[in-house]
């Protein structure tokens, strides 16, 4: 097998950008508006930054994602621990959550629009739903997968249920919980864009829709690049956090 040097991953991107620039400059696709050159897109990126349009919309989306994701994950973890730890809770709530889980987060949008109205709470509620269920199920799995012998060992050493939860169950369930968080961190960005495109007048999704109506492919590409980078950063952040916490024993 060929061993590649670190940093090799940048090469395909450079080739891709060069090809993109060449195809656009040589006008190989019909109509230049459909594929502006990379350089022109970057110029637009700079302009959007300078005018504050990009940062304003980006911040709006970021705050919604952060709040919705934080509350949704926290609720998912708390409920997941309760359901994973107490059979009664699991047996009682699982049938309900099993029915709700398959509904795509965006499927809730019409209902939330009627219940909440079109305001800042709407995208946060959508992100909450988007984050809650996957984190919930990963946490339940994490808690249930903790080997019972660790619990028994802690019990023979005198630990109370609460202490066992804090010092044994939760730490050992962390890898599963982080898997849920990592997957949903990217998904939250994908969902907020879709929600903003459909129902919210501000944010990156709304900017995308406006650019589409003006046939500004360069702006669309700029927003998509920002979105891709944010999904990547969020996912990598949780992967790093998981590695940092479990590197000695995971």
């Amino acid at each position: 097998m060929v061993r590649l040097r670190p940093g090799w991953g940048i090469v395909p991107i450079v080739i891709f950008i060069t090809l993109w620039e060449a195809i656009a400059r040589l006008n190989l696709l019909q109509g230049q508006n459909l594929l502006p050159p990379f350089s022109a897109t970057m110029e637009e990126f700079w302009l959007l930054l300078k005018t504050g349009i990009l940062s304003e919309n980006f911040l709006a989306s970021l705050i919604r994602v952060l709040i919705g994701f934080f509350i949704g994950s926290l609720a998912g973890i708390a409920m997941g621990i309760a359901m994973g730890w107490h059979n009664f809770m699991d047996k009682s709530l699982n049938p309900i959550f099993s029915l709700l889980y398959p509904i795509p987060a965006l499927g809730w949008l019409p209902l939330f629009m009627l219940w909440i109205g079109i305001n800042e709470l709407l995208p946060i509620a959508i992100i909450f739903v988007c984050s809650f269920f996957p984190v919930l199920y990963n946490t339940i799995t994490g808690v249930k997968n903790v080997d019972k012998s660790y619990v028994q060992a802690a019990r023979t050493l005198g630990a109370s249920d609460l202490r066992i939860l804090k010092t044994v169950i939760l730490p050992l369930a962390l890898p599963n919980i982080f898997t849920g968080l990592r997957l949903e961190a990217g998904m939250a960005w994908r969902t907020i864009i879709a929600a903003e495109m459909v129902a919210i007048p501000t944010g990156l999704g709304a900017l995308l829709m406006r650019a589409e109506s003006l046939i500004r492919v360069d702006i669309i590409i700029v927003v998509l690049i920002v979105l891709a980078v944010m999904c990547l950063i969020f996912e990598r952040f949780f992967a790093y956090l998981e590695w940092k916490i479990t590197k000695n024993w995971g």
Binding site: D147, S149, Q152, A153, R155, T156, L157, G158, P171
Partner: peptide
Amino acid sequence: LSPNKRGVGYLFQDLALFPHLD
């Protein structure tokens, strides 16, 4: 009485050392 109040120490078959603690 709970296990700790009985004054027992237990060495489990799989030892059950907590993997996340040194």
